[in-house]
Lab assay of single mutants.
Amino acid sequence: TTYKLILNGKTLKGETTTEAVDAETAERVFKEYAKKNGVDGEWTYDDATKTFTVTE
């Protein structure tokens, strides 16, 4: 399944996708990605669109 991440950081904005077996796995991948890019904020997930959003 393809999951999407929307980054709404103070200095970094953008989108990325990952293939994962479930939302929990995708969330771990995306949180590591955000951490590596210095983005830390509020996380939300929309199951209907398989989209995570992190907003600083």
Rank of each mutant, 00 (worst) to 15 (best):
4 K>R: 13
52 F>C: 01
46 D>V: 06
53 T>N: 06
22 D>T: 09
45 Y>Q: 01
5 L>G: 01
9 G>E: 03
21 V>C: 04
55 T>V: 08
10 K>Y: 06
12 L>S: 11
25 T>M: 12
25 T>A: 15
27 E>G: 10
22 D>M: 04
53 T>H: 08
6 I>Q: 10
14 G>T: 08
34 A>T: 11
47 D>V: 12
37 N>M: 06
37 N>W: 09
7 L>R: 01
50 K>L: 12
47 D>W: 06
40 D>W: 06
52 F>S: 00
30 F>K: 00
51 T>K: 04
44 T>Q: 12
46 D>P: 00
22 D>C: 04
48 A>H: 10
26 A>P: 01
14 G>F: 13
19 E>G: 07
52 F>Y: 12
20 A>P: 02
33 Y>C: 03
42 E>P: 07
56 E>F: 06
4 K>A: 05
35 K>G: 10
51 T>S: 12
49 T>Q: 07
8 N>C: 04
24 E>K: 07
3 Y>D: 01
3 Y>I: 01
50 K>E: 05
23 A>E: 12
50 K>C: 03
4 K>S: 05
33 Y>E: 03
36 K>F: 12
7 L>F: 08
13 K>C: 04
52 F>T: 01
35 K>N: 14
30 F>N: 00
29 V>R: 10
28 R>L: 15
52 F>V: 01
2 T>Y: 07
4 K>N: 08
26 A>G: 02
27 E>T: 06
7 L>K: 01
55 T>C: 04
52 F>E: 00
16 T>A: 07
18 T>H: 12
18 T>Y: 11
42 E>C: 04
54 V>Y: 02
47 D>P: 14
2 T>F: 13
34 A>L: 07
43 W>T: 02
41 G>C: 02
38 G>K: 14
42 E>R: 06
41 G>D: 02
49 T>N: 10
43 W>A: 01
48 A>K: 12
48 A>F: 12
42 E>K: 10
21 V>A: 06
40 D>L: 14
29 V>H: 14
24 E>M: 15
16 T>Y: 13
41 G>H: 02
56 E>W: 13
39 V>D: 01
6 I>W: 05
7 L>D: 01
46 D>W: 04
29 V>F: 12
13 K>W: 10
31 K>V: 14
8 N>P: 02
13 K>Q: 10
27 E>D: 10
12 L>D: 08
8 N>G: 04
32 E>Y: 07
14 G>C: 05
30 F>Y: 02
56 E>Y: 08
43 W>F: 07
45 Y>D: 00
36 K>M: 12
52 F>I: 01
47 D>F: 15
9 G>L: 13
55 T>D: 11
22 D>H: 08
8 N>R: 07
19 E>K: 11
23 A>M: 05
5 L>I: 05
45 Y>T: 01
47 D>A: 11
43 W>S: 01
53 T>Q: 08
23 A>D: 04
39 V>L: 11
3 Y>V: 01
34 A>F: 03
35 K>C: 04
50 K>I: 02
8 N>F: 06
56 E>H: 06
55 T>F: 11
51 T>L: 06
15 E>Y: 06
10 K>N: 13
3 Y>K: 00
12 L>N: 11
53 T>C: 05
50 K>Y: 08
11 T>V: 13
37 N>D: 05
15 E>K: 05
3 Y>A: 00
40 D>E: 07
28 R>W: 13
42 E>Y: 14
46 D>K: 07
16 T>H: 15
56 E>R: 02
42 E>N: 08
39 V>M: 06
21 V>R: 09
9 G>C: 04
35 K>Q: 11
23 A>R: 11
36 K>H: 06
4 K>W: 09
52 F>W: 08
26 A>H: 00
25 T>Q: 12
2 T>V: 08
28 R>D: 10
40 D>C: 04
44 T>R: 07
44 T>C: 03
40 D>Y: 06
49 T>K: 11
53 T>P: 00
48 A>N: 10
6 I>F: 10
5 L>S: 00
39 V>P: 02
10 K>C: 06
50 K>N: 15
29 V>M: 13
3 Y>N: 00
21 V>N: 14
14 G>N: 13
50 K>P: 00
48 A>W: 09
7 L>C: 04
35 K>V: 13
5 L>P: 00
39 V>Q: 04
32 E>H: 06
17 T>M: 08
35 K>I: 10
24 E>D: 06
28 R>P: 03
26 A>E: 00
37 N>S: 08
22 D>K: 05
22 D>W: 03
40 D>N: 13
53 T>W: 08
36 K>V: 12
9 G>Q: 06
36 K>R: 12
45 Y>G: 00
20 A>E: 14
5 L>E: 00
52 F>L: 01
1 T>C: 04
5 L>A: 02
38 G>T: 05
37 N>C: 04
10 K>H: 09
53 T>E: 07
26 A>Q: 00
49 T>Y: 10
16 T>I: 11
36 K>G: 13
27 E>K: 07
29 V>D: 07
31 K>R: 11
46 D>S: 12
55 T>I: 11
28 R>I: 10
10 K>S: 14
30 F>I: 01
2 T>R: 08
28 R>G: 09
50 K>M: 06
43 W>I: 03
6 I>S: 07
29 V>L: 15
18 T>P: 01
33 Y>T: 04
18 T>C: 04
12 L>V: 13
53 T>A: 06
20 A>N: 03
28 R>S: 07
14 G>H: 15
43 W>E: 00
20 A>G: 05
31 K>H: 12
4 K>D: 01
40 D>I: 10
27 E>W: 14
43 W>R: 00
14 G>D: 14
26 A>K: 00
11 T>F: 14
39 V>N: 03
15 E>F: 05
17 T>E: 10
45 Y>K: 01
42 E>V: 09
34 A>M: 05
51 T>R: 03
13 K>A: 14
43 W>G: 00
40 D>G: 12
6 I>M: 06
53 T>S: 05
52 F>H: 02
39 V>E: 02
24 E>C: 06
46 D>C: 05
12 L>W: 07
